[in-house]
């Protein structure tokens, strides 16, 4: 009995030892590898991930971690100290600025109004888009298309993309309760791709080739249109800082604003800041 008992204890001890060793190793690793955390907008996220990848290939000693969650979640994470840099696809509110949050514009993007490729409509005015999303216009015939019900797709409450859309198109008018709600650019894209009657809004940089992008107030949402300030639904992608950045984070931000990185963003469909 006794030797058997001792044996189990020994194996338990060994297991404990292994666990402790692993934990200690984990600790060492995170100490050696310095990390910058980015949290926020799902619209900015794919671009930030790309930039982080590029940066890490040049500076492997720094680990840049990018997480989504949404613009407002990113700003909260920043305030709570969970993230060092927040990402936002909407401009900061006055209240947020008053708390000492500072925006750093990293690129410009258009809010693309997207429809199914088979849709005959090529452009809408902001007034028409507003009426569609508020439920006043319900058939494509009313805006020069074929006889087909319009199915507007909006984003969830609190999304930066939604807030920009509300600010620039809806104003004080409410989005119709009947509008479908999807929780990411990807989900909006997937839905519009399959539904001939759908209309949605999403980040221009993420549209890809499968959807039809409408002109707004007669201006195509092209890189030139946005760069020259003609496209009415242009917006800025922001990094947000709270107080001073650490030298590591500052180095990453400097890289993002550098010519190389801006060029990279341009090749991905965004418009450079200057």
């Amino acid at each position: 009995m006794a030797p058997h008992e001792r044996k189990t204890r020994l194996s338990d001890l060994a297991l404990l030892g292994v666990v402790l060793a692993l934990t200690a190793l984990g600790g060492c690793r995170s100490q050696k590898q310095r990390t910058v955390n980015l949290v926020g907008s799902t619209s900015v996220q794919p671009f930030a991930e790309l930039l982080a990848q590029e940066y890490q290939s040049r500076h492997p000693e720094l680990n840049v971690e990018v997480q989504g969650g949404g613009s407002t979640a990113g700003i909260q994470a920043l305030e709570n100290g969970i993230a060092e840099i927040g990402m936002s696809s909407r401009s900061l509110t006055e209240a947020e600025k008053a708390k000492g949050l500072v925006p750093i514009a990293i690129a410009r993007d258009g809010l693309a109004i997207v429809v199914h490729p088979s849709n005959g409509v090529t452009g809408l005015s902001r007034q028409q888009i507003q009426s569609i999303f508020s439920g006043l216009i319900t058939n494509w015939r009313q805006v020069g298309g074929s006889d087909m019900p319009i199915r507007p797709i909006t984003r969830e409450e609190g999304s930066g993309t939604r807030e920009e859309f509300i600010k620039r198109v809806m104003g004080k008018v409410r989005v119709s309760r009947g509008a479908l709600v999807q929780e990411s650019n990807g989900a909006v894209k997937e839905l519009v791709r399959g539904d001939p009657g759908a209309i949605g809004y999403m980040s221009l940089g993420l549209v890809g080739g499968e959807l039809k992008v409408l002109a707004v107030d007669g201006v195509e949402p092209s890189v030139e249109g946005i760069a020259q300030g003609k496209y009415p639904l242009a917006r800025e992608f922001l990094f947000v800082r709270h107080g001073e950045l650490s030298s590591d984070a500052q180095a990453f931000v400097d890289f993002v604003l550098s010519d190389d990185a801006q060029h990279l963003l341009e090749s991905e469909g965004l418009v450079r800041t200057k």
């Binding site: 979640a73 709600v181 929780e183």
Partner: peptide
Amino acid sequence: ALEMGYASGAH
């Protein structure tokens, strides 16, 4: 689940 990520205050 849709709105919790962003919500603050009364929301």
